[in-house]
């Protein structure tokens, strides 16, 4: 049995148990996907107090919509999609300014970014220092636009593939690659800047 079939089999067993009224199975589903929901909620919802309501709303939606789930994607991707849309809906309804800022991107064009990384004449890129990197990385990530923070987290923390992230965010894989490229470029510049400023 290949991994996809095996995964669908497990997803199906879990869904069948939940639909049969097994609340333990639903609890298991929550514990398995809570990380992904937390990641999206923390990156997309700036008001900490509202995240709890959002997370609860997500799982109630999951519970109600589960009979309609057709196993066309991983169960976790489907839950991620519900979370992403619920967060967007929240931003749209309650905080339109935040929604605007979520999609706000840097003014630097992708071409400029690509060139920005090239060394100027007689100047070489300095080496990032691993020792201090952990401390400054968090600081650097915070400076990225919210959308890029979300995508970076889905790609690196959650270790989702581009097609899975595409399934959650409804963005094309090309667009995701472009966002990730910009994010990594900016991160590198921010990190080098921080290290230079702090004389590390």
């Amino acid at each position: 049995m290949d991994t996809k079939t095996e995964r669908q089999h497990t997803d199906k067993q879990l869904v069948d148990s939940i639909l049969g009224g097994d609340l333990h199975a639903f609890k298991l589903l929550i514990s398995e996907t809570e990380n992904l929901v937390a990641h999206l909620a923390f990156k997309m919802i700036p008001v900490a107090a509202d995240r709890k309501d959002i997370a609860q709303e997500v799982y109630l939606k999951v519970y109600k919509s589960l009979p309609k789930f057709r196993f066309q994607s991983k169960l976790s991707t489907w839950i991620g999609q519900i979370t992403y849309n619920t967060c967007l809906h929240y931003l749209e309804k309650k905080r339109p300014v935040l929604l605007e800022s979520f999609f706000e991107d840097t003014d630097i064009s992708i071409d400029n970014l690509a060139n920005a990384g090239e060394p100027a004449e007689n100047e070489t890129e300095s080496r990032l220092l691993a020792k201090e990197l952990n401390e400054t990385m968090n600081q650097a990530v915070q400076q990225l636009p919210a959308m890029q923070q979300t995508l970076i987290g889905l790609y690196y923390h959650q270790e989702l593939s581009l097609s899975e992230i595409s399934g959650i965010t409804n963005l094309s894989e090309g667009s995701l690659k472009s966002h990730l490229f910009r994010a990594r470029q900016q991160l590198k510049h921010i990190l080098l800047k921080i290290q230079k400023r702090e004389g590390i």
Binding site: E34, N35, A38, H39, A41, F42, K43, R51, K52, A55, L128, A130, L133, N134, M137, N138, V141, I152, G153, Y156, H157, Q158, E159, R184, L187, K188, L191
Partner: peptide
């Protein structure tokens, strides 16, 4: 950078 990003703590409720 990639390995540091992967190792960063994930947010949790």
């Amino acid at each position: 950078m990639n390995s540091t990003l992967k190792a960063m703590p994930t947010p949790a409720f």
